[in-house]
Amino acid sequence: MAVFTPVTASQLEDWLQNYDLGDVVEFRGIQSGIENSNFFLTTTHGQYVLTIFEKLTAEQLPFYLDLMRHLASHRVPVPDPMPRRDGSLFAELNGKPATIVTKLEGAPELAPTPAHCIEVGQMLARLHLAGRDFGQHQHNLRSLAWWQENVPAILPFLADSQRTLIEDELAHQSAFFGSADYASLPEGPCHCDLFRDNVLFSHTADHARLGGFFDFYFAGVDKWLFDVAVCVNDWCIDLETGVLDRARVDAMLRAYQTVRPFTPAEERHWNDMLRAGAMRFWVSRLYDFHRPREAEMLKPHDPGHFERILRERVKAAAPSATR
């Protein structure tokens, strides 16, 4: 069970004295999650999620929570942080920062169809546009500088072919990030981790209704195209091979561009950004696998999944590849 910091009924009752959320009806831990302790909280006022942050600090939290509140105020379906009586969005619980957010409806769709991809693509574009007037700035903390810092630490664990791939891709992305075209790409707050398990859907007999996006704790300011690429690399692929599913890719990209069309530079560098999205998660999974933190409590994800995806994207960029 992914609850690292337990909360007793009396601790919860005391902590809730600083909220106007009514009386507790139900409180239980959520088994999923690898970064934080999460609990479903039902009160006489509604349904919520209480999160205790196991790694993020009080200094880091305002960007994420304020961004979620900003997006919710712009009618983007995301968890809305509940203010305490003093107006703050979090406070210490059992020695760690904690917050309460609204609970979204639905469940993750782990076998998406083009119809699901349409819903996600349109809403991701709406999220990007809604973030344009968000006043805070924090860059994506898992972008190029993080790769450059951490790739040397994982090189000793890699086979020759893996070292060649990761070093070549790091050089390619360094050149891309340093280009004038990259600088011209539109940017703003991004989710940066919009995988299938971070989106909820409610289903009826003939329609899949998007419930919302959650888990914004890897969010940051980045190129919007990067956010789209991360999404496509998870939602629109064959999970065994990493090969893109053209029907789902077309559905998501067409839907996104009905809200925000790509610029010519974004169209030119679509494959470069797909490679960047794959690189980001291959590096982080390699690091978690080979250099786990001493207190790591859950099994890390398989790094080979994003190695396969990156190899597919590099192959697609080769001169002989079918365009």
Rank of each mutant, 00 (worst) to 15 (best):
S284T: 09
S284K: 05
R285E: 00
L286M: 10
L286G: 00
Y287K: 11
D288Q: 11
D288N: 10
H290P: 04
H290K: 07
R291V: 08
P292E: 00
P292K: 02
P292V: 02
R293E: 08
R293G: 10
E294V: 12
E294C: 04
E294H: 12
A295W: 10
A295V: 13
E296D: 14
M297Y: 10
M297C: 02
L298F: 13
P300G: 05
P300W: 12
P300I: 07
P300Q: 08
H301R: 11
H301W: 02
H301P: 01
H301V: 01
D302S: 06
P303R: 13
P303G: 08
G304T: 12
G304W: 06
G304M: 09
F306D: 03
E307P: 01
E307V: 05
R308Y: 05
I309Y: 09
I309W: 11
I309A: 06
L310V: 07
R311W: 04
R311A: 07
E312R: 15
E312Y: 11
E312A: 12
R313Q: 11
V314K: 09
V314G: 02
K315L: 14
K315R: 15
A316E: 13
A316K: 12
A317K: 07
A317T: 14
A317E: 14
A318N: 11
A318L: 15
A318W: 09
A318C: 09
